[in-house]
Amino acid sequence: MITAMVQFFKLPPEERAKYFTTDHSKQVKLFNYYLKVEEQEQNVTMWSETFPSKSKSEVFAEYAKEIGRLMKMLLGLLSQGLGLEKDCLQKKLGDNPTLIARGNYYPPCPDPEVTLGLAIRTDLNALTVLRQTEGVTGLQVIKDGKWVAVDSLPSAFVINLGDQIQVLSNGRYKKVHDRAVTQQGHCDWCN
């Protein structure tokens, strides 16, 4: 999966441009996140490109199957942590949750002090499974009121709890507030 994302983002900009669209019904597309600023008439583009794929390719299908297993296991552990039956949260979310593979690419930035890779946000879904590129920094979370960098670890996933888990747990589990900051030469893959 990582190899497929890396190969895509290594394509020349004019090749990647063929996939840019605002039509979210397309199976494969490339888009930018935007930030609405009240004082400005136009939205501000974040310093990133996002490639979500619902492609039926073998690589994506196998990845989705394995991530689905991981998510089922995590939901079971979260359920048990709440003192519930192991399959409780899985049942609440449904047997076939939507899985979307998404690669976020933050191109090298000539002036990272005046750009933002991805603004502060929470995930609407239950869980987000992120796989960072080894040695790449930029992902940050709020801890004790301060932004803290989330270091990438070889062959490790970062698991973010989203809005649905906070609601389903009656606030016992808290959603994660995160952002991505740009750096010179920075590039990251989040799935």
Results as ranks from 00 to 15, higher is better:
Gln166Ile: 02
Leu11Tyr: 03
Val6Gly: 10
Ser53Val: 09
Ala126Gln: 01
Thr98Asn: 15
Gly76His: 06
Leu99Phe: 14
Pro110Ile: 02
Lys175Pro: 03
Phe9Arg: 06
Ile67Gln: 10
Val181Thr: 03
Leu82Ile: 07
Lys54Glu: 13
Leu116Val: 05
Ile100Asp: 13
Lys36His: 12
Leu35Gly: 01
Asp95Leu: 13
Thr98Gln: 15
Asn32Arg: 01
Gly83Met: 05
Met46Gly: 00
Leu84Pro: 03
Ile100Lys: 12
Pro12Tyr: 04
Gln184Ile: 12
Asn104Ala: 03
Phe51Arg: 02
Leu70Arg: 05
Leu30Arg: 00
Val150Ser: 02
Ser48Gln: 14
Asp188Gly: 12
Lys86Cys: 15
Glu134Pro: 06
Lys174Gly: 03
Leu75Thr: 09
Leu130Ile: 02
Phe20Val: 13
Glu41Thr: 14
Lys10Cys: 10
Ser53Phe: 07
Met5Leu: 11
Gly83Pro: 05
Glu39Tyr: 12
Arg179Tyr: 09
Thr137Arg: 11
Cys187Phe: 14
Asp151Asn: 08
Pro154Phe: 04
Ala101Tyr: 13
Thr115Glu: 00
Asn170Glu: 08
Leu139Asp: 02
Thr182Val: 06
Asp144Lys: 10
Tyr19Lys: 13
Arg69Ile: 12
Lys174Glu: 04
Pro13Met: 04
Ser152Cys: 01
Asp23Ala: 02
Gly171Asp: 08
Ala64Ser: 14
Tyr63Leu: 05
Asp163Trp: 08
Gln42Ala: 12
Ser53Gly: 05
Met5Pro: 08
Met46Thr: 03
Gln132Leu: 01
Gln132Asp: 00
Lys86Val: 12
Leu153Asn: 06
Glu66Thr: 12
Phe157Thr: 07
Arg16Thr: 02
Val59Phe: 10
Asp151Cys: 05
Pro108Ala: 09
Leu118Ala: 04
Gly135Asp: 06
Glu85Ser: 10
Thr128Met: 06
Asn32Cys: 00
Lys174His: 04
Val176Cys: 13
Tyr173His: 01
Lys92Pro: 07
Val150Cys: 04
Leu78Gln: 02
Glu134Asn: 10
Phe60Lys: 11
Gln166Ala: 06
Tyr105Glu: 04
Leu168Tyr: 08
Glu58Phe: 10
Gln164Val: 15
Lys86Thr: 11
Ser79Asp: 00
Phe8Tyr: 07
Val150Trp: 03
Lys72Met: 10
Arg121Val: 08
Pro52Thr: 02
Leu161Met: 07
Glu113Gln: 10
Asp178Leu: 15
Asn170Gln: 08
Phe8Lys: 02
Thr128Val: 07
Thr3Gln: 15
Cys88Tyr: 15
Lys65Ile: 11
Glu58Thr: 13
Lys86Met: 13
Gly117Ala: 01
Thr22Gln: 11
Gln184Pro: 13
Cys190Phe: 13
Lys26Ser: 07
Leu84Gly: 03
